[in-house]
Design a binder for these strands. Structure first.
Lengths: 233, 233
DNA sequence: ACAAAAGTGTTATGTGTACACCCATGC
DNA sequence: GCATGGGTGTACACATAACACTTTTGT
């Protein structure tokens, strides 16, 4: 078979920025890198793209390796290709970000990688240009969540409106009036009120809701505008 | 120097979706591909990423090769990596889109490539997965232009409000009330009214405007909402 | 004088925002 | 019975959307 002769081949990697929400703040999942260079330092989970897999497949494989999760929200973020970003050998990296329900994450699977959840704000320094990757992922999530209902991907299937509000406040680093918030959220028609309550957060308890999946898929592409005063993008 | 052994290297390309506006409709610049496979068929301008260049540099180089233009709006769109997308050899392609002033484009430079501008709606079938690249670029431009003032990049430095409106109507495939349009556009503070008029479009003539660059850079990241009824994203 | 496009102002409607009180429960 | 968080309604301000006529000038 013919090839494109005289062209240089290079390594292609996928790195995953994995976000979770613990009910209080936004977190990311990091690993201790297991090989040189930068062995033992905090890093995103990543891997090389294999000959027979697409980029999406590669990202899903890497995500599953670390978390055991499949079918979660995963989106290609940006491709990073500065010639010197990896000191060993030129490697271009396609960054993906994932939004996972932190409670579904199976901690034991990632023992191999010494993975830990860090508050996004208090994460350690990362290797190479991964700091920049995380920062861009943070921006993208804000940008997108300001108009599309992606943040539900971070919550369990049953959640309460106060939980949802805390999530939005955490992502946008702001405070929202709860009356206005619930009005807008309910006005989307995305939520179905359930009969039972979450008694964990308060004595009275807060009603559980779940997504109306029909409306969810229909409205996913539509614009929304949830956020009064994001402190910046 | 150490290498990552046992990993497969692959070809990395950059493809550019180049948009222009002729005063009537949105157009893209295509070339007749000069080598196998698909030689002689319509294609995006592209090239392989060289060992010493970043992805942005690569995209700028490719754009300049075809158009002679430098310093134009260029944004990374998405990376396409289906294993079989190029039948000759696995090639992952980072797609960029460019917004150029079609009048600054120097046709003679691209004679080598037999380049032609096509109406976006009436462009010929493209090779590989480039159809999908163009479609995604179209979506991205709409998405971004709905909130950020990027479409000015398609106009000459001096332009009229009716020209700008035609551009928006063309990109969003809709019609906009001219009274509301000019009110909103002027309210942004992005435009400086000039003393002279463009007499080409009408007998009375329309005042030229130019961008207020201070406000332009300041507001670039801010949200806007120009479009009443986009027919979809 | 008329055709063709440019330019401009007002009103109605709806959306967003600010704001305060009662409810249910566990202790 | 009180402290804690959950839940709801209204009034005002602002932004958006609908809409029609006058101006200029080349022919």
């Amino acid at each position: 078979m013919l090839k494109y002769s005289k062209q240089t081949r290079l390594l292609l990697a996928v790195d995953c920025i994995i976000f979770g929400f613990d009910g209080e703040v936004l977190k990311i999942l990091l690993i201790k890198r297991g090989f040189q260079p930068e062995k033992g330092n905090w890093s995103l989970m990543g891997g090389f793209v294999q000959p027979d897999e697409s980029l999406d497949q590669s990202a899903n494989r890497i995500l599953k390796q670390l978390t055991g999760l499949e079918g979660v929200y995963l989106e290609q973020l940006y491709t990073f290709g500065q010639p010197q970003r990896d000191p060993i050998e030129r490697t271009v990296s396609v960054a993906y970000f994932a939004l996972v329900d932190i409670h579904k994450y199976e901690a034991q699977i990632s023992d191999d990688y010494h993975a830990e959840w860090f508050q996004l704000k208090r994460a350690p320094k990362l290797i190479f240009d991964q700091q920049e990757m995380v920062e861009q992922a943070r921006k993208r999530i804000r940008y997108k969540a300001a108009m599309h209902p992606i943040l539900f991907e971070l919550l369990p299937t049953k959640f309460t409106i106060p939980q949802l509000q805390t999530l939005y406040e955490s992502v946008f680093n702001t405070t929202i009036d709860k009356r206005n918030f619930s009005k807008r959220v309910l006005a989307t028609g995305l939520l179905i009120k359930l009969a039972d309550k979450d008694k964990a957060g308060s004595k009275r308890g807060a009603y559980y809701y779940q997504l109306n999946m029909q409306n969810y898929y229909a409205k996913f592409q539509a614009f929304m505008n949830f956020i009064p005063n994001p402190d910046s993008l």
